[in-house]
């Protein structure tokens, strides 16, 4: 018994759920929703210095149909919220959402009539990142939290 002997014979055993979650967690492609200055930090997050490809999320997809994690980076006006929700609805399940920065999380300093006070008013947010704007490491931390979340979810098995 033991993993060594199993590998020695050229195969290993695992649960299908775990295998799929492992794959999903390490290939969470982001949908960049760059609306303001946070988008610059989001670019740094994908760039070579912070190098999010270590976590399998370097492939910024500009098509919602190919992405798994929406990063809402910046303040959201009521007018823009309709576009964001529409893109979110076009993303295939399973999907996750990061509210990046103070504005996306709570409205931030834009405490006024035109700005939605937090994107959780119309999106199911999985991770909130504080900061104005947050450092790229903080966004990576949020991504790692989402990876942890993905790994504990049911994927093939239905939660009945």
């Amino acid at each position: 018994m033991g993993i060594e002997s199993a590998l020695g014979e050229g195969y290993l055993t695992t649960r299908l759920d775990k295998l799929i979650n492992w794959g999903r967690a390490n290939a969470a492609w982001p949908m960049p929703m760059g609306l303001a200055c946070c988008a610059i930090e989001m670019m740094a997050f994908a760039g070579p210095k912070y190098d999010v490809s270590r976590f399998g999320s370097e492939v910024f997809r500009f098509s919602p149909r190919q992405s798994d994690v929406m990063i809402v980076a910046g303040w959201t006006t009521y007018k823009m919220s309709h576009a964001i929700r529409r893109i979110w609805d076009q993303m295939p399940d399973p999907k996750w959402c990061i509210a990046m920065g103070a504005c996306a999380s709570t409205g931030g300093m834009h405490r006024c009539y035109g700005v939605v006070q937090g994107v959780d008013n119309f999106l199911p947010v999985d991770a909130y990142v504080s900061g104005c704007p947050p450092r790229p490491d903080a966004v990576i931390h949020a991504l790692m939290k989402i990876q942890d979340k993905i790994k504990t979810e049911h994927s093939v098995l239905l939660d009945t």
């Binding site: 009539y113 035109g114 939605v116 006070q117």
Partner: peptide, 24 residues
Amino acid sequence: FPMRKEFPLLGIPGSIELPNTTPD
């Protein structure tokens, strides 16, 4: 007219519609 003085800072709740959060 939001810049008139009597208009509240955070706007009038429900005056601008948020997107529908239930998928079709």
